[in-house]
Amino acid sequence: MSGIINGTVAKITFRATMGRKRAFLFAITPLILLVVTALLKLANPERASWPADILGVFGFSVVLPLTALIVGTSVLGAEIDDGSIVHLLATPVRRSSVIITKFAVAVVLTMIFVAVPELLAGLIATGGVTRLAVGVFAGAIAGSVIYNAVFVLVSVLTTRAIAVGLLYLLVWEGLLGNLVSGASELSVGQYSLGVANSIARDPALNAHLSLGTVVVAGSVVTVAALALAIRRLGAFSLKGDAA
């Protein structure tokens, strides 16, 4: 993997992503997660499952997907939108290397802004290194990987990546995931919760899939999304001044 990660592309991507105005958005939802967790801890609610509710439901259906959406569509989509990608593509760097590097940067950023806060919130909520805290950390790492593969692909496919990503999250994961049982098998949110629950073993997390299923399905989705993104970037074309 190390040969395919391009250090220069990674550095430029990191600086471009963190330098944009939308970068402050990365920190908003994780901050809310931490503040709400701390407040709940202080309030000491009677409902015993509150840590799983906040870490699982809010963490995995709001914080993780939204942050991954903004990061995953920023690392490549923003450059495609403003045209600066041409400077990168007018070099012999392999298109696979561009996609994998951008994906890796997105995964690392999402882990920093979601997985780490989930772990911290888990430690605060449960008062120590518990199965739940470690579980949501592992689940958020898995989610960072799979979501970003999907959102990097979406940003190569369309210039309206954020809108398409939001539609997927709201309609597929939010609505159909709760109404149609089969939809959860194709839901990245459920893959992440599946990983979390394999460690946490907490029914309040609402995980519907077994670890075996989520590992296989998550890997297939990640590899397929990246392979398709590489293929599409290889055929990246510039619009001319059509007469």
């Binding site: 471009a16 045209g83 041409v86 400077h87 007018a90 012999p92």
Partner: peptide, 30 residues
């Protein structure tokens, strides 16, 4: 692109870099 250099018309560059950083980064990409 080992034999070809392209100067696109589009004005967009990595504007957050300095001129030297931009050219050096391109040299590294090559």
């Amino acid at each position: 692109f080992r034999t070809v250099g392209l100067v696109p018309e589009h004005p967009s560059v990595y504007a957050f870099l300095t001129g030297a950083e931009f050219v050096r980064a391109t040299a590294r990409l090559h």
